[in-house]
Write a protein that binds this DNA or RNA. Structure first.
Lengths: 200, 200
DNA sequence: CACATTGTGTAACGATTGTTATACAACTCG
DNA sequence: CGAGTTGTATAACAATCGTTACACAATGTG
């Protein structure tokens, strides 16, 4: 190790990248489980920098939720939007959820929001953010269904919002099972069965 | 207040009742979020009694999970078993889940297991317990479906295990939404739609 | 009644928590 | 090339964490 840490100001750190790292730590250890030391070590910075950039552990947590829910943090959503065919899109959504949730080692591990659920009642502001994130996702998915209806790819009486909520909950179920360590293949085997439920 | 706490050994406490109280505290605040002081205060005992009876905060947590998952802790499951008609039973299962998850004030608040999800990766032994609890519940629900098949109340090609897992995940979805503070009526409106999915 | 046992309440332990004051190194600008 | 700004590293802060030693009150047995 020749690169000994020297004091001073060698380089500025990227706040967004650091926040992404904070998401991973929070997701793995939870809000109270993740100590400031855990966070700063993973982010590669010291505590004063963290407090200067994000204000607080609490604020950092809320900003982590915001970044994740309002953006590219959610891989299944991206997969759903990318795939043109609606049926394949639904499948990609659920399949990506399983992939992310079961690949624990690779750093990206499932849905961060479900890990924040525990703190919804105790940590101020979390419940509101989660509620908003869910509703936005529901609306997002439903909008795609509506567009497919007008395009003629789905029947005219297709209940967009109900199916959107269903799809979200099915994903949540997979994430839950994956987090508990259940078998990946078993979930993949049920994929077609569940895709069928969403798109009639 | 005339009943001033006097030292000594006035009365023994009920370990099972205390454990039930511990479940509520853990469920509300999470594993790391619930301090030993929070626990002992709610249980009405002092820390030495807790350590003598349960050994450890960690062991207490595991025993809380065991009590909840292997018993009457799960109200939706009880409702499902009580109702004779299979279709009404499925409905009761989901409806009870919504009721429990949305009645935050009354002390009984939703599914304790989903709040333990966060600690599955960090707290030793939690993942194994959760995995077992889920699989047991799946098998439990599927057994009922199988019995209804032989009784002629469900078609012969009814996929019991797949529907059991689906039902479990649908419940999980409701609990998730309720914990995030979403509207109760919206979930109740979708009830029939989802019951239909489970029982064809 | 006296003794051993059992479990409680008080209080303290070291360790770690989140947070911040202080000192200094590096870059920017004149 | 020197002064000012910016942000880092070190170290310490009070508070709280999980855990346990100690002393004493209440019960069961002789």
């Amino acid at each position: 190790m020749t690169d000994t840490k020297k004091p001073g100001r060698p380089r500025n750190f990227d706040p967004k990248e650091a926040l992404q790292t904070a998401i991973n730590v929070f997701w793995e250890k939870g809000y109270e489980g993740a100590s400031v030391k855990d966070l700063t070590t993973a982010m590669g910075i010291n505590s004063p920098s963290l407090y200067a950039a994000f204000g607080d552990k609490h604020e950092l947590f809320l900003k982590a939720i915001e970044l994740y829910s309002s953006g590219d943090g959610c891989a299944p959503l991206v997969a759903f939007e990318t795939e043109p065919d609606i049926r394949l899109a639904v499948r990609a959504f659920l399949e990506t959820a399983i992939d992310y949730a079961t690949q624990h080692e690779s750093g990206a591990r499932g849905c961060f929001l479900s890990s924040c659920l525990t703190n919804a009642g105790t940590v101020e502001g979390v419940e509101a953010l989660l509620s908003r994130a869910i509703q936005e996702t529901d609306a997002h998915l439903a909008a795609r269904f509506d567009a497919e209806k007008t395009a003629g790819n789905l029947p005219g009486d297709f209940p967009s919002m109900e199916r959107a909520r269903l799809m979200f909950d099915l994903r949540q179920g997979f994430v839950f099972r994956a987090r508990a360590g259940l078998d990946r293949q078993t979930m993949l085997d049920e994929l077609d069965h569940r895709v069928q439920m969403v798109v009639s």
